[in-house]
Design a binder for these strands. Structure first.
Lengths: 147, 147
DNA sequence: TCCATTTGTATCGTGCGCGACCTAAAATGC
DNA sequence: GCATTTTAGGTCGCGCACGATACAAATGGA
C-alpha cells in the first residue's frame, strides 16, 4: 500500500525500517493513549512500574536506555498527572524512587485491551513477533556493545 | 550484557524492542554524524535526496512517514548548513522542491563507510538483517493500515 | 466566472531525547 | 577525620515529532 519501495541504499538495511516502524508504533498507540491522557514514553514507563513498583530513576533510565535528563522531567509530568509519587530514598540520599499511586495502578487494567488491539493491527502472528523481538534485542545489544 | 531481561508484559511483544532499538541506532550513529555536523534525521533525509534529487517536501515527508510540520524546519536547517536549496515549484506555486548543493552531494561519498561500520556493530549477518527489515516493513504497513 | 473545497507549506505549543554542565550525597583514599 | 572521586538527579539549550491552526495556490462545480 505504502511500501514505497525500500531505498536500495545499503544504509537502509535496517535503520530506515526501525526509524519508520518506531514512528508508526507511536502513531498507532496515540489514539488509545489519548483516552488515558498519556504519551507513549509515559505509558512505557508506567508498564515498567506495573511490573515492579518503587524503582529508582536510574534503574528505569537504564531499562529504557535513556538518560536521566530525559526521564526526570517525564516522571515529574507523571507526578503532576497524579499517577506516581517521587520520593528520596531512605537509604541513599541521592536516589529518587518512583511509586505508583492508586490512580497510576488502576491504569494497569486498561493495558491488555490496548495491547491486543495493537498486536492485531500489525498483521503478524505471535511467532513472527517473537522472532522480530529477538532480532531487535540482538541488534540493540550489539550496537550498545559493552555499555 | 545489558539485556535486562525482557519484561514479560504482553505490551512488550514488539513495542519495547523497537523503542529501545531505535534509540540505540541513533546513539550508534551520532559519533559518525557528529563529524559531518548532521543529526540522524537530517542524514536519513539526505539519503533520500541522494537517491533522487529535487523531491517535494510532501514526497519526502510521506517516505519518512512524518508530518511536513516536522520536515519543514529540518530542511531549513539543512539549507542553513549549505547542503540543500529550497525552491518553489515552477508548475505548482504551493509546492517546495528540495535540491542538493555540491556540498550536500559530496557527503554521499562518506556514507558507505559509516554504513558498513554500523552493520558490523550490529553483530547480525546479512540474512538476519534482511529478515529484520522485512518484518519491520510488514509491521509498519500493518499499523499504518490503509493510510 | 465565481465560490467552495482541497492541497502544500508554514507556524506555534507541548513533550521527548541528548549532551554539557551543576549540585549534593555517598564512597574511597590517606 | 578530611580531601578526593564517583554516583544520582536535575537544569538548560537544541533539535525532532506531532496536532492544531493559518493561509495561499490549485481544483472542481454550478
Amino acid at each position: 500500500m505504502d511500501s514505497f519501495d525500500i531505498p536500495k541504499q545499503a544504509d537502509d538495511l535496517f535503520c530506515f525500517g526501525v526509524y519508520t516502524a518506531s514512528h508508526a508504533i507511536n502513531r498507532a498507540y496515540s489514539p488509545h493513549l489519548k483516552k488515558l491522557g498519556l504519551t507513549y514514553p509515559q505509558y512505557i514507563t508506567l508498564t515498567l512500574l506495573w511490573e515492579c513498583d518503587g524503582q529508582k530513576i536510574n534503574t528505569l533510565a537504564k531499562k529504557l536506555g535513556m538518560e536521566t535528563s530525559t526521564l526526570t522531567p517525564l516522571v515529574k509530568r507523571l507526578e503532576n498527572l497524579g499517577h506516581v509519587i517521587r520520593s528520596r530514598s531512605q537509604t541513599d540520599g541521592r536516589a529518587v524512587e518512583v511509586f505508583l499511586t492508586e490512580q497510576g495502578l488502576a491504569l494497569k487494567h486498561k493495558a491488555p485491551e490496548i495491547t491486543s488491539c495493537m498486536i492485531e493491527q500489525t498483521r503478524l502472528d505471535k511467532s513472527e513477533l517473537q522472532k522480530l523481538q529477538t532480532l531487535l534485542f540482538r541488534l540493540r545489544d550489539g550496537l550498545n556493545g559493552g555499555r
